[in-house]
Design a protein around this nucleic acid. Structure first.
Lengths: 223, 223
DNA sequence: AACGGTAGGCTTACGCTGTAAGTGCGTCAA
DNA sequence: TTGACGCACTTACAGCGTAAGCCTACCGTT
């Protein structure tokens, strides 16, 4: 079908690369969910057959690992000379944004144990910012673990909420208040009622709250 | 094959139920990973054909949702009259233990938006403990979100580490120090070196550190 | 004692998945 | 001009979730 154009001129098809394959897989997963990003679907979006992908990727698992690494590549690195406190704040916000752009990423992380180059670079930069801020090696590890746990966990919760924005929350909360037998889950009902009456609540603002609690509790150790 | 025994006596096969199906699926996933827990494999472990499961479960998605809910059912509820601080501490430990027993659970959570009854009961009890401890509705929500984010995120990280215990960490750290081009990831190298020389570090203790930071930063608001 | 309904197994079949294996073309080096 | 090689292609297969329909053992009624 595309045979006629294949002459001496520059090929009618951009060459496949590992990066292009991973990028196509990410788009497919963003649009149709992780399960929708099949080898055939990814290949089709590149105008190619499924098996051609295997020239650039070891298999599906390798592809998923590459996708996760690419997400880390999208997170802003802490600026070189900046103060650690605002730098960590910005990084956390950027990380959350990247993980929300690619909702499949968090769910993939727990099954991947070999970090890619972008992941390593990112981790190294964060540790560096903390060390430069006066954190000891041990304390930097503590802080890093705590901050990242919070970020990943928050996004995980955020994605499993049955509502997306403030309006949907209001609708959902109303349904809950009406549907619930009133005293089976009294405290959930209390929270739901508060949101129905108050409204305008965005779960996203919870992220700021927790992040500030953690950042204010952390500080470099002077030894 | 099992035909002969089918007489008037009590049936040779325990009746299938949703609970038995979910329990079998959990065992299968614990042993062979989420991907290994196929409908056919689960059915086989119950001495039944795959399609029989559909009499008790709407489909694979429904089954996975039930499994996640069952994991929440394994988490200890905060004791009724206890102080909120130790109660939250115990719940966090119990939650981490349950999520570690079933490594597939965290990865499943982000794709499931309808909480099951055990999940609701659990959430209600935690909110109740905080409210009883003097937290306002808003503050209880903050605290809950922060604590759960930390727990989920920590387990997520824990599971994607390329080592399991202190010994494996030492081996891995040694490999990293030896294999790394020394100055591509200087701060990672620094941390790895510290672990090689010091040793005996268990990542699990990081959990305690972060948990205490958060618990100490939280307190009920007196309004 | 005989009967009809129903619950809950079973079998079959379909489209889709990841991927092993082998084929053939386009390009570049000598 | 020729040889080799990279890379996309085709074919094929086992295993997946599940729709549809069948079959039998049980139970309440008559």
């Amino acid at each position: 079908m595309a045979k006629s154009a294949t002459t001496t001129a520059a090929g009618p098809r951009a060459p496949l690369t590992r990066e292009r394959v991973i990028a196509a897989a990410m788009s497919a997963a963003d649009e149709k969910g992780e399960a929708g990003a099949t080898m055939r679907a990814i290949a089709a979006s590149l105008g190619v057959e499924a098996m051609s992908l295997y020239n650039h990727v070891r298999g599906r698992e390798d592809l998923l690992t590459g996708m996760v690494d690419a997400v880390f590549g999208e997170i802003d690195l802490p600026t070189a000379g900046a103060e650690w406190h605002p730098a960590m704040r910005e990084r956390a916000t950027s990380a959350r944004a990247a993980l929300r752009r690619h909702p499949w990423a968090v769910g993939l992380m727990d099954s991947r144990s070999e970090p890619g180059p972008a992941t390593l670079r990112h981790h190294d930069a964060v540790l560096g910012a903390l060390r430069a801020g006066g954190f000891s090696v041990a304390m930097a590890t503590h802080a890093f673990s705590l901050l990242d746990s919070y970020i990943y966990g928050f996004v995980l919760q955020e994605q499993s909420l049955p509502f997306g924005d403030a309006d949907e929350l209001r609708v959902t909360a109303t349904e809950i208040v009406n549907a619930m037998p009133a005293d089976t889950y009294p405290h959930l009902a209390e929270v739901a009622t508060a949101h129905v009456t108050r409204g305008g609540y965005d779960y996203g603002s919870e992220f700021e709250f927790g992040l500030d609690v953690i950042l204010d509790a952390l500080r470099p150790d002077e030894v």
